[in-house]
Computed example of a mutant assay.
Amino acid sequence: MRALRSLRPLSLLLALGFSSLAQAFDLQQLSDQLAKPEVIHGGFVQEKHLRALPQPLTSKGRFVLAKDHGLLWLLQTPLQQDYRITGKGIARRDAGGWQMLPGKNAGAEQNRLFLAVLQGDSSGLQRDFELALSGDATAWKLTLTPRSLLLKQVFTRIDIDGGELVQRIELLETQGDSTLLKMHDSTSNQPLSDAEQHDFAE
């Protein structure tokens, strides 16, 4: 009887351990959560921290993320410039409409990464990074460590924080520079406007 009593705490601990494992927040759940909204509208503040400058270079704007369409990245300050990021590549709006940009520059790769992160494309990210996730559905942190030699030459790691949606992305570069992207006022309850639908359709 005494032996049985002494086993009870152990079996209780094991049961608690297994139940917490079963409830652990994993990459698939994060992907499903981030991929759920059809459309996300929000604002962003991007800070580029350069070792050579005492203050970060700050830009602000709005974004529209639409499932099955892509990302509109609408820079408002310090200058106005619109970008569209889709599976086909990255386009910039000028007086003549949307113009595709070369797909191999560093900025293009960074924007593709933003799109994969915001859409919850963990399988796409896993091709290029080791992923480490902590937290739960309401407050999580995802750390991306580069796999390929090319990415290792650019980034030491990328940290992503969020809750229901992505809230913060920080890219730490090997040269000591970094980019901090803060998403704010994100909402998933507004459909695409006619103008936004037109932008994605062009």
Results as ranks from 00 to 15, higher is better:
W73F: 15
D128Q: 12
S122R: 07
G96R: 09
I90C: 08
I158V: 11
L144I: 14
F155Q: 02
I40L: 03
V117P: 03
R112A: 14
T86D: 12
A137T: 15
G70D: 08
V45G: 01
L118T: 02
E202M: 05
R84L: 15
A108F: 01
K104T: 09
D194C: 05
G124L: 14
G163Q: 02
L171T: 09
R2W: 04
I90R: 01
G43S: 09
T138I: 08
L172E: 14
A195F: 13
Q190M: 14
L65K: 12
A3E: 05
L142I: 09
A24W: 13
R147H: 09
A116K: 07
N111P: 03
L14Y: 01
M100Y: 08
Q76S: 08
W98E: 14
Q81K: 10
D161N: 11
R84M: 15
L150K: 14
Q197T: 13
P9Q: 02
F18R: 01
S178R: 07
D136E: 14
L27H: 07
M183D: 00
G89H: 01
Y83S: 05
L34Y: 03
E196T: 13
R168K: 05
G163L: 00
E196S: 11
S186N: 04
D82I: 03
I160F: 06
L133N: 08
F114L: 12
Q80F: 08
G103R: 11
A35P: 02
L14A: 06
L72N: 11
Q55H: 07
T58Y: 04
D159M: 06
